[in-house]
Amino acid sequence: MSFTALGMIVLYLFLFCYIVIASIDFGAGVFLLQAKLRGTQKTLTPVIARYLNPIWEVTNVFLVFFTVGIVGFFPDFAYYYGTVLLVPGSIGLLLLTMRGSFYAFQNYGPDSKFSWLLIYSVAGLLIPPSLSMGLVISEGGYITKKGGHVDLNWADLFFSPFAWSVVFLALVAVMYISSGFLTFYARKAQAMKAYALLRKWFIFWGPPMALVSLFAFITLRSQNKEHFDIAVSQYWWLFLISIICLIAAWVLTILKKSPGTAFMLVILQMATAIGGYGVSKWPYILYPYINGNVNKTDDPMALALTIAAVCGLLLLIPSLILLMRLFIFSKDYVEGKSEEGHY
């Protein structure tokens, strides 16, 4: 295995961690807004706030590591994506900045306002579609290169079934993952009213998650048949495991059994789906312009980047585990016996 391939595995771990942690974070913001609108904030807000307070500042670190790493391994990545993703990328960064700022205003300011919560929640819902444009464009068919000039075909992107399937998948995945974790977290906190509400949301988002995932997989065939054929012929078992995990988590939640196990199945579901997508796509980073076996940095640089990425992972994962043990899953903290934020 080359250093580049090993580095990409580490970068995929960063991306996977970001997808899970950020989805919980983004979805939690939507549930806070929903609780405010429906008058259930006394039920839901304490549980959600206890999760958000310690974790919101570290979420984007995984995204930064992934972005810096992939540009280091594949210098052409900055050339192509820096041009075609200028608009959606800038929107995503603006939304991330707005979301962090208004969370701070809302949670740590002397007074809270509904408008701040609204901006915080809506921004969190819009970030996944804006960031998912990178995945959509990576499948090819949207970029034209004439000489040294790169153009994005906006009309093709806007009217692409695959592009819209990924956008809807990003939105549904956020609500699905977040409701799954918060259901488990509410049960652990012994907040049974919050658990009942969040359990209904997780059950609700299960079927849309399955349907949108299937739609995205089908539309991939029309967008990139080569990738689709490899995924179906060689890595079908990973996607089968993902489907089984989705069904098992949904059934356990319906039966009110083991919410912790149900969320671990959600994690396994996402891990196998993302893993299957990644390995079936390799060595292409951007069809057909960036091939991981050809358009890569030299071996000494790849080795240095791999070591740096592994060290970053070894630093972040234990830090995240420590944060969870000290705060998020601490018995006194999760049951609200220590100080918590307000909304």
Rank of each mutant, 00 (worst) to 15 (best):
K256T: 08
A78H: 11
V174I: 11
G140A: 11
F14S: 03
V232L: 02
D229S: 06
W56H: 02
P288H: 14
I307P: 05
T144N: 09
G27M: 01
L169G: 12
V166D: 06
I9M: 07
M192F: 15
P110M: 15
G148M: 02
I203D: 00
G206Y: 10
I274D: 04
K256H: 11
I243A: 06
S132W: 05
L118I: 05
K145C: 02
F159D: 09
L214W: 15
I119K: 13
T97E: 14
L135Y: 09
G92E: 00
P161K: 14
L315P: 01
W205H: 05
F65P: 02
K188R: 02
Y103S: 08
L11Y: 02
N107Q: 03
S179T: 12
N291W: 01
N107I: 02
S330K: 07
T306F: 14
Y80C: 10
S233P: 01
L37K: 03
K145Q: 06
P318E: 12
E335M: 15
L157T: 04
T253R: 13
V174S: 01
W201F: 13
N53P: 00
D25K: 00
L93R: 04
N53Q: 15
Q269W: 14
E339I: 10
P88T: 12
P318W: 08
G140C: 07
Y289V: 07
K225F: 12
P54R: 13
L85S: 08
S121A: 04
A196S: 14
L126I: 08
V232A: 09
L37N: 04
G336S: 09
T97K: 05
F215T: 05
Y343H: 04
K188E: 06
V64N: 06
P161E: 06
L238V: 12
Y103W: 15
K225T: 09
I321K: 05
Y287I: 03
I143M: 15
L322E: 04
T261Y: 15
V58K: 00
W205I: 02
D298Y: 09
Q269L: 08
F14P: 00
L314C: 06
I70T: 10
L32Y: 04
E226W: 12
E339A: 08
T43R: 06
L6D: 09
E57K: 07
A308M: 11
L316F: 14
P300S: 08
W164F: 01
T261K: 15
E340T: 10
A49Q: 12
S130T: 05
S130G: 03
A170W: 01
L214M: 14
G140F: 04
G89Q: 09
R199S: 09
S242F: 04
A35G: 09
I328D: 03
Y185M: 01
D151S: 11
E340V: 11
F263H: 06
A49R: 12
V279N: 15
Y277W: 11
A49Y: 13
I254A: 07
L13W: 08
D299P: 04
W250E: 11
Y287D: 11
F202A: 09
G260P: 05
K256S: 11
Q41M: 06
G92K: 00
G147M: 03
A309W: 04
S160T: 02
V64I: 12
N224P: 01
L197T: 08
V122F: 12
L126S: 02
L131S: 01
G341I: 09
I70F: 00
G147I: 07
